[in-house]
Design a protein around this nucleic acid. Structure first.
Lengths: 295, 295
DNA sequence: TTGAAAGCGCTAACAG
DNA sequence: CTGTTAGCGCTTTCAA
């Protein structure tokens, strides 16, 4: 059943060995300093691009570095500096398209800023969320961005450590930490406007939640209605399609049969689940000129 | 256009402060040792679950730890131990479904083994691949798994550092490092067998590559043919559908119109790109009893 | 069973 | 402009 194979070879690092000398230890600042005939401090200065180093010295140090294949030990540096340059990103599930894309952008942005991103996965499990937030606090990251699912309010607060934390996602934060969210009303309204601009007149809101009207679903419905009003379109109750509460874990296929008309529909996703893409597949943004990503 | 909002509050870490004393410094082994009236060594012993500690001492140390809210500094530990417990996973793009799922499983497995996974993204860029592989070598990970796209053979070898490295993916490795790949022949054959078992008789191979017949496409075609033969089905050349070479970056929609018959088809994905799901959407595994994940 | 002291590799003070 | 010294917080010989 399992069609998996391993090909192995010995002598892995042979070509790029790069050792200080015959010993197995890799070179340190001290080694470089000795070889260059300077002090460790000067080596450090060169590495960190400090200005006050004479060109001659710098050249000598750099040669020594090259010669020894020296690479600064980041762990030691982190210890000394008291920060790791790492940022944590705590997500429920990496393979939910929304989070995968989120991860991609965080990864890219972190790199642009010279930081390293550490992605953690909670699977939406309360205990794991707590454990991850707690564990990441042990000086491993300088700060973290968390998308909680189970944890909220005071339950979340009790796990806040000493590292700066920013929340993302729709779960209410109760003002316990910085929280970045989209403006749901504006987003829904904008989606409607977009569809109107593309020439659509019958626009459905799929995913309206039954009473009591609260939270994100309410905000989005509000935006939806504002959008209709703005476009001078009538509010047709039949087009406000309720769906079962779409809480985690995934409810695959639930949206599929919510479409109002089988053909000629223009999807406009405003949800974080994988539902919309299931709903409108195989429509792609290319086919319908519909944005799936909001700036 | 951007429907983004920030809600911020001050006084973030107030509830879970947990400091040693009035000072802003967080507690260290030394602090714990002092409070418990023992030596740092003993504290270390307790933390690391060493056996030879008298119950009384252990209790005293644990109380001190609790009292000070002590949490071992992982960076210091890593420096001393010489390893970080981190494993690097180097992928092209996180939001390609295949890699997202891969990431998910790596994340889960790493956690099960008490390791931390560090995911890096190369975007398939040669320089970035080199930079990431190189950068991860600076004592930040104990080993890494790399899915290279641009780098191969000797170009890859020159970037091998001192950390153990395992390759994954279809790019030929030239035996320069351990490489885990699927058995393409067996996998394709298995896919055909599966379809036969589900009752299909007209089975197409979509994605066959034009001459010269080499590498992965060849292996998969071979498996496809073996599968047909095994099932006693005739080889119909019209069912071996060629597609343009599907190299990176993504070629969205290319597969879409390759279907042989619009309805009643049973997809069976054996590709790493997002093509297959675009091809057979909105068919899901649930609808057709088709495995999308191979064990 | 526990303590004292050394040191992982680096950089921040402070001299010179 | 460069060297000396000390120390980040932890674990680890080696003794006691």
């Amino acid at each position: 059943m399992t069609a998996v194979k391993q090909q192995t070879t010995r002598d892995q690092a042979a070509p790029g060995r790069k050792r200080s000398d015959g010993a197995g230890r890799s070179a340190t600042v001290k080694d470089v300093a000795t070889l260059a005939g300077v002090s460790p401090k000067t080596v450090s200065n060169v590495i960190n691009g400090f200005v006050h180093v004479s060109p001659a010295t710098r050249e000598r140090v750099q040669r020594a570095i090259r010669e020894l294949g020296y690479r600064p030990n980041r762990v030691a540096r982190n210890l000394r500096r008291g920060s790791t340059g790492m940022i944590g990103l705590v997500l429920p599930e990496l393979d939910v398209p929304y989070f995968a894309e989120l991860g991609r952008h965080f990864l890219t942005t972190a790199e642009e800023h010279g930081r390293t991103l550490l992605i953690e996965q909670t699977l939406g499990d309360r205990e794991r969320e707590a454990a991850v937030i707690h564990g990441l606090g042990d000086q491993v990251v300088d700060g973290m961005v968390v998308s909680p699912l189970a944890l909220h309010g005071s339950a979340l607060a009790s796990h806040l450590g000493t590292v700066p934390l920013v929340l993302i996602g729709e779960r209410p934060s109760g003002g316990l930490a910085d929280h970045v969210v989209i403006d749901n009303v504006a987003a829904a309204q904008e989606a409607v406007s977009h569809l109107v601009a593309v020439g659509r007149r019958r626009i459905a809101a799929i995913g309206v939640q039954p009473e009591p009207y609260i939270g994100t679903p309410l905000l989005r419905r509000t935006g939806y209605r504002q959008g209709l009003e703005e476009a001078g379109l009538p509010l047709d109750p039949r087009l406000e399609r309720e769906t079962p509460a779409t809480t985690w874990p995934r409810a695959p296929g639930r949206w599929r049969r919510c479409s109002t008309r089988p053909n000629r529909r223009t999807p406009c996703s405003a949800s974080t689940t994988r539902s919309p893409s299931a709903h409108c597949a195989p429509c792609t943004s290319a086919d319908y000129g519909c944005r799936t990503t909001w700036p």
